[in-house]
Design a protein around this nucleic acid. Sequence first.
DNA 1: GTAAATCCATAGGTAAAAGCTATAGCTGGT
DNA 2: ACCAGCTATAGCTTTTACCTATGGATTTAC
Lengths: 278, 278
Amino acid sequence: MDLRQLNYFVAVYENGSISAAARACHVAQPSLSAALQQLEDELGAVLFIRQSRGVTPTEDGERLYGHAGRLLSQMQSLKASFRHSVKRVQFRLGLIRALGVERMSQLLREFSAGVEGLELHLVEPEDEADARIITPKMLKAGEQFLPIWTDHFLIALPAGHPLALKQSLQLEDFDGLALIKRTPCDAWSQFYPELIRNGIQPDIRADIHTIEYALGLVSAGVGVALVPDFDVLHERQDVVLRPLQDVTLQRTIGLAYPRSKAGQPALDWLRLLCQQQS
Amino acid sequence: MDLRQLNYFVAVYENGSISAAARACHVAQPSLSAALQQLEDELGAVLFIRQSRGVTPTEDGERLYGHAGRLLSQMQSLKASFRHSVKRVQFRLGLIRALGVERMSQLLREFSAGVEGLELHLVEPEDEADARIITPKMLKAGEQFLPIWTDHFLIALPAGHPLALKQSLQLEDFDGLALIKRTPCDAWSQFYPELIRNGIQPDIRADIHTIEYALGLVSAGVGVALVPDFDVLHERQDVVLRPLQDVTLQRTIGLAYPRSKAGQPALDWLRLLCQQQS
DNA sequence: GTAAATCCATAGGTAAAAGCTATAGCTGGT
DNA sequence: ACCAGCTATAGCTTTTACCTATGGATTTAC
């Protein structure tokens, strides 16, 4: 019974699934399966009941979790008590605005957790930085680009909007339509000229920067907006998402970093995290 | 920082020396040195001051020990709380009598500690057993023999006995000498016939079985006795040890076990312990 | 009802880590 | 000065943690 196994056990417990825990721990699923098996063999107890939809803890699993959490945190604080003079690691990360609060904050949380003594400074995407999360178009000379997410764009409509009756929208539908402009946005700079080229003139009601604001305006009935297809958006009851016919809008967001800085531990860790984003 | 390293750290602390801790943990000394180094690197603190005569803990070492001990014992009790229905392992060990309480009890302590749920039954050396600690002469067919200790024999004299003035004793010195017989004993069965062959007739005052009793009688002035050369005996002020000239008496004590039972975990562990006896 | 997706387990191979032996350097005791 | 005992280093072997790939089982989707 070592700390590695206990850590994995806790992760499995808290994720309710071996696969999910493996993703959270950044290891392959069989590694976790094996570690869990070892732990169970050593304790002579079954800790989880394996089901096709994840695992559920047994009574022994519950009992172990109670103690394991306490033990691990004691271990952490013991280790921390020796971290008197850890060198602070400064890291400047440039961020474009419209990339989704949810997944971004999760990425940053993991980034911070993985680097001892990290001081993370978030700056504007065009500022000088150790790394930037941007679209390929913003790349500078000497920078390496590592794709993270590819988002398709949809049209967000207020619930109850007449166009919500259609399964997908055509360009013609936008003529005179109340539209919310969101910049800077790759999709917008593809989409808007396309409208103009077709002689379609929408009614632009606002120009804002973040997806969250755009959705707020949509929900308020100000107009419709072009937004990336995040999973969380589908759960909102106040907006309806519809694909565009005829034109495919998508963008890629990735990590840009100076080739010369590869090898720096914080950056390497960030690159690893980015690679593992689905 | 894993439990292995913490365990080693505690062992080093409690033994006051890396080498001694390595012996206690049944690993080679460099393994411990390396683990300790890792721990110090990770914590960024020096835990022990290395001296030529062992190590002494620093302030950080003292602090870590306070917490590490508590953590490890919590870990142990957590593990123990799952050992509800461990299969009891029965083990019958045959022991000849005269092999020295000190080293024997230490061996048995380590044996018990290393086998989960061990029920150790000590039986007479000639009884049916899973293993026996005996001299090679007592070997039965189909048994493997693994030497553990080789003892040289000395003569134990009461302090102040006239023969104590000599640095070593000759056979002639035994003519008419008050002698304590200890059987069964390999050395005795070599030595006594040798005396008779030379026409020397000692005065046998007692016949007992264990070394401790023999020494008690020597100390009481009943006579002199033939005893194996244990280190602890040299520390006694009430008896004097002298080698025998002309004749070398020694015995080998070892572990005898049925070849067929090799592979059984308890026996394998015992074999390992026996191999590591100095 | 079949196909796709999801989850856990197993197999086989690779690379890191922990182990061992041998040896060098250092210090205190005979 | 030499010996004995301790720690550190070097070189090598064994163990083990990890990965990819795949199979079996079950739930979800169409």
